[in-house]
Amino acid sequence: MKNLTLILVLAFMSSLTALASEYEEAMKAQIQKMNNISSDAEAQDVKNGFLRIAQANMSEWLPMYYAALVQTEAGLRFDVDKDAYFEEAQSYLKILQDAGASNSEITALEGYIMMGMVSVDPGSRGQSMSGPTMETFGKAIGQDRSNPRAVYLMAQMERGIAQFFGQGTEKACGMFKMSLDLFEKEKEKIDENYLLPSWGYEQAKQMYESCN
């Protein structure tokens, strides 16, 4: 009887390991595709791939997070109905939040989506949305001060506000430098778990270089 129980336990553990391996391989493939998106059609294909992984792995937050990220960046990069794309990205984050997921990456992405909405019509939306967007980035930094994306995105918002009002961008440039330092420190953590968010370094670097 003990031998049978041991066999069943080992079989169960083996099946869990196989499922975990399948999840990681599927995520790795989608992240590689995400990093090479060149059109909205490709973005939608990658987004749908993440949604399928999310449906099969309801306890994981990363697939839905990446689906929201892909849709956000598609809205920023391509000639599409931007508000519709940002609203769809928000709906994916709401699924995570309703399920109790809460961390600095999710909050920073929430702010990123809000920033995208402001960019659609900064003249009419900036006054009402800039404050809440900055507060969201501040919350993300408070959740994890080592998150470079939270700092980089806040710097980008700070720079946009300063330029809109014809003010200096010294504060934003300092924050871009801070984010680059955090990206360097993050590399070891990403090496240990390559599925975690690691995007933003090249954008932050370009922003900082434009300061000089």
Results as ranks from 00 to 15, higher is better:
169 T>K: 11
149 R>T: 02
170 E>Q: 14
114 M>W: 07
137 F>I: 04
117 M>P: 01
61 W>E: 08
19 L>K: 15
142 G>W: 05
128 S>D: 13
102 S>G: 10
35 N>D: 15
19 L>P: 10
94 K>L: 13
142 G>S: 11
181 D>Y: 12
199 W>S: 07
103 N>R: 09
54 A>H: 07
191 D>N: 15
96 L>S: 06
22 E>S: 11
132 P>I: 06
15 S>I: 12
93 L>H: 04
188 E>G: 10
195 L>P: 04
176 F>M: 03
200 G>L: 06
127 Q>E: 15
200 G>A: 03
59 S>W: 09
209 E>N: 15
63 P>Y: 00
22 E>C: 07
84 A>T: 08
182 L>V: 01
82 K>P: 00
141 I>M: 01
89 A>D: 04
68 A>L: 01
109 L>S: 03
177 K>C: 06
184 E>Y: 08
153 L>G: 00
6 L>Q: 13
74 A>L: 09
99 A>N: 12
137 F>A: 00
200 G>Q: 04
63 P>C: 06
145 R>W: 12
191 D>P: 09
3 N>D: 11
198 S>G: 14
79 D>M: 15
137 F>Q: 02
9 V>I: 12
25 E>C: 04
151 V>L: 06
143 Q>N: 03
4 L>P: 00
94 K>N: 08
14 S>N: 09
164 F>G: 12
24 E>G: 05
9 V>H: 02
95 I>F: 11
36 N>T: 11
8 L>S: 10
212 N>E: 14
198 S>I: 13
101 A>L: 10
97 Q>K: 14
39 S>V: 01
149 R>V: 03
145 R>F: 13
66 Y>L: 06
65 Y>N: 02
168 G>L: 09
128 S>E: 13
166 G>M: 05
170 E>K: 14
62 L>D: 03
186 E>R: 15
82 K>N: 01
133 T>W: 00
87 E>M: 11
210 S>N: 08
75 G>L: 02
105 E>G: 04
173 C>M: 01
136 T>V: 05
12 F>L: 14
58 M>G: 13
68 A>I: 01
143 Q>S: 02
191 D>F: 13
77 R>T: 12
43 A>W: 06
150 A>L: 07
20 A>N: 09
37 I>N: 00
161 I>D: 06
58 M>A: 15
75 G>Q: 01
80 V>I: 08
112 Y>T: 11
163 Q>Y: 08
79 D>P: 12
182 L>T: 01
185 K>W: 08
93 L>D: 00
1 M>G: 11
48 N>A: 08
54 A>N: 03
